[in-house]
């Protein structure tokens, strides 16, 4: 009989605490019923019990049959996971290769071309680790979403053919742009939080290509605010995906995020310069301030160009938001589907 108890204990090891004892009792009672049925009532020998347990199957399999299938990322969210993963991986690879392609572009001699090819090969492990990290983070986020049993795509709800968007509507709702925006935001979050030393340019000095990281130490001050803004953006896009439309309240929520954007743009231009030579990142690439002397002079020029671009962005965001808010505030107005 000890064999039966060992079997039941082993099944219990693979069962959740909550239902363990109850299921174990039921299996015990079943085994005894089976033995009675097969060999008649009375004492048992180990051979009979062994035969019976073999028939029941491995304890792990028996325990598994009592539990619903478990997923790290379930079928409901798998589609969203794959779409966002694809975009994140493309964006991370893109950001990494952008710098590389610049060096190919400017390699006018064969030697310079070979050097930049070597650069590309040498940096592949870095790209690989970036991709694996991005994949890991995304899996983790989706596993948490799965645990909390939320779904990116809305549950089937009441639907009527009248709800189909009219063909004249310029831009019917498309989830693709939401997925792209979430994907790019996640990629930006990963790149700037985990690989800030990647942001920079390639420079051909003497006989060598050198990668010069250009994010200033003060960028770290701005990062929490950027992270918050991006997290809110991902939240908003997830809600839009769930509702499958830009409802009025979601449009207002998007407008409420704009002051955030304006403040960030203003901060970069007037208060916290994000470009500069960061000794830590330079050290990461095996450089010192003297190695990049020329860029100290070039930096103000690059910064000015960036600031000009950001000021234009500031004005564009401000004007388009005012127009959108004006349209929203006007009652009974058909709104175009603006997806930014």
């Amino acid at each position: 009989m000890k064999l039966i108890e060992r079997y039941i204990a082993e099944v219990g090891r693979h069962l959740p605490q909550k239902s363990r004892e109850d299921i174990q009792n039921e299996i015990r009672s079943t085994i005894e019923d089976m033995l009675d049925d097969r060999f008649g009532e009375g004492s048992r020998n180990d051979e009979q019990i062994t035969e019976m347990l073999e028939e029941l199957g491995p304890p792990k399999k028996v325990a598994a049959s009592y539990q619903p299938e478990k997923y790290l990322i379930g079928p409901k969210n798998y589609g969203a996971f794959i779409q966002i993963l694809r975009i994140v991986l493309i964006a991370v690879t893109g950001a990494y290769l952008l710098g590389m392609s610049v060096s190919f572009w400017f390699s006018d001699t064969e030697q310079a071309f070979t050097e930049s090819l070597m650069n590309l090969v040498n940096s592949l492990p870095g790209l690989f680790s970036g991709l694996v990290t991005s994949f890991g983070i995304l899996v983790l986020v989706f596993a948490i979403i799965e645990r909390t049993r939320t779904s990116f795509e809305s549950e089937e709800e009441e639907w009527h053919p009248d709800q189909l968007p009219s063909l004249e509507e310029p831009e019917p709702f498309s989830s693709t742009s939401q997925y792209w925006e979430i994907g790019f935001t996640v990629a930006a979050l990963i790149l700037l939080n985990l690989y800030p030393q990647w942001a920079g340019i390639f420079s051909f000095e003497g006989d060598n290509w050198t990668f010069i990281p250009l994010l200033a130490p003060s960028f770290a001050l701005l990062l929490p605010l950027l992270n918050l803004r991006w997290a809110l953006g991902i939240g908003l896009n997830s809600l839009v995906l769930q509702r499958r439309e830009w409802t009025t309240s979601l449009r207002w929520a998007k407008i409420l995020l704009v002051p955030f954007d304006l403040y960030i743009l203003y901060s970069i231009v007037f208060r916290t310069p994000i470009l500069g030579l960061n000794p830590e990142y330079l050290a990461f690439h095996g450089l010192t301030n003297t190695d990049v002397g020329i860029y100290e002079q070039l930096l103000p020029l690059i910064t000015n160009a960036l600031n000009l671009g950001l000021m234009v962005a500031f004005i564009v965001v401000l004007v388009t938001t005012i127009i959108e808010a004006y349209k929203l505030a006007r009652p009974n107005q058909t709104l175009p589907q603006v997806i930014v």
Binding site: S19, E26, T30, L56, G57, K61, V62, S65, Y66
Partner: peptide
Amino acid sequence: EQGTLYPLLR
């Protein structure tokens, strides 16, 4: 099979 029936009952 009992592996099917018992969990199904639950």
